[in-house]
Write a protein that binds this DNA or RNA. Structure first.
Lengths: 158, 158
DNA sequence: AATTGTGGGTTCGTAAATCAAACCCACTCG
DNA sequence: CGAGTGGGTTTGATTTACGAACCCACAATT
C-alpha cells in the first residue's frame, strides 16, 4: 500500500489566487478588460475565442470573486459592461508579468500583434523590486519560510 | 444569423504564455519546484494534491516547453528530479505577482502557511517598475498599442 | 526466498469541464 | 413586418480531470 502518504496540499496565496483567476479563459478575459479596453460580452468572445457559455460562467465567477463588476450602460433592454474593481485593477501586475515572460520565452511568432507601452514611451518591460528595500529581486533572493507543517520537515516518525 | 462575427482571437504573449503555464496544476507544480524546494514527483503530488496522472502529463509538457528539465539523481533504478531551466527560473516574477495579489485580495484564511522572504529580511512584496524609466507602474500607465487588426478598428464594412 | 517498501509513474472507469453550434429573448431599426 | 443587435442559455458530443488501483525496477528486511 501507498496510503500513508496520500496528499496534504499546501495552503498558500498562489493557490488561493489561482482558484479565482486560474481557470481557463479567465486571464484572457481579464486581459481584454484590463488592458485592451474591451468591456462587452461579444467583444470579449470575439477577441479571446472563448466559448460563449464558458465565458459567461467565468465573468459571473469573477464578478462573484470581486474582481469584476457589471455596469449598466443601457436600460431597456438592460445591458451591462464588465469593469474592473480595485482587486481587478491590481491584476495588471500578474498580467504583465505573464506577458513579459511570454514575450521573452515563448514568443514563437516573429511579430507580436499586441504590444504595450509605458507612459514614459518605452515598450513595457517589468523590473520587480522588493517593496521593502527597493532592490531588484532575483530568483535566488527569495526564501520560503514556512510555518511548521508535518510534511515539510523530516519527521522522526511518520 | 450571427455568423459574420465568429471569433478572431488576438495573438499576444499572454496567450502564448498561458498555453505553457496556464493549464491546471502547472503553476502549483512550478511553485513547488521554484519556490519550495520540492523536486521529486511524489513530493509535488503530496504538496499540491494534483492527481498523479495529470501531474505526470504537466511535468512532461513543461519539460517539452523548456521550462523544466529532468536531472538524474540515481541510476538503477533511474530516478529523476525536476529542475528549472532559465525560462523556468524567470517565472518567479509571475509566481510572486500571483502570490502578492492573492495575499492582498483573496487571503481568506487568517494565517498563511507559506510565506516568502526577500534576502533583505522583509516579507516579500513586489513593486513593479518600468525597466526603461524606473518609475513604478500603475494600471493606468500602460497603453496597448496594437498593430492593425480588423476587429479593433471600427471598419466601414463588416 | 519471500515479503515489504520506495520512487515514479500508467491504467482504469467515472465525473466534470469544455466545446461549437443552435437557440432564445428583449428590444430597435428600416 | 422582418432583420439586426447584444447578451446570454441550451444541447449534445468531446476532452480533461479525477481517485483508486495497478505495475515495474529495485533495495532492504525477515
Amino acid at each position: 500500500m501507498r496510503s500513508p502518504r496520500t496528499a496534504d496540499p499546501r495552503v498558500c496565496s498562489i493557490d488561493a489566487a489561482l482558484k479565482v483567476i486560474g481557470e481557463k479563459w479567465a486571464l484572457l478575459a481579464l486581459r481584454e478588460i484590463a488592458a485592451l479596453g474591451q468591456h462587452r460580452f461579444d467583444d470579449i468572445v470575439f477577441n479571446t475565442g472563448a466559448p460563449r457559455d464558458i465565458l459567461a460562467a467565468r465573468l459571473k465567477s469573477l464578478e462573484a470573486a470581486g474582481v469584476l463588476q457589471r455596469r449598466l450602460y443601457q436600460e431597456r433592454p438592460a445591458r451591462y459592461e464588465y469593469h474592473l474593481t480595485e482587486a481587478g485593477e491590481q491584476l495588471f501586475a500578474v498580467l504583465h508579468a505573464i506577458r513579459d515572460w511570454g514575450d521573452r520565452f515563448v514568443r514563437d511568432d516573429p511579430e507580436n500583434v499586441v504590444a504595450f507601452r509605458h507612459s514614459c514611451g518605452a515598450k513595457l518591460s517589468l523590473d520587480m523590486r522588493c517593496a521593502a528595500c527597493g532592490e531588484a529581486v532575483a530568483p535566488g533572493d527569495v526564501t520560503s519560510h514556512r510555518d511548521v507543517r508535518r510534511s515539510d520537515i523530516v519527521c522522526t516518525k511518520g
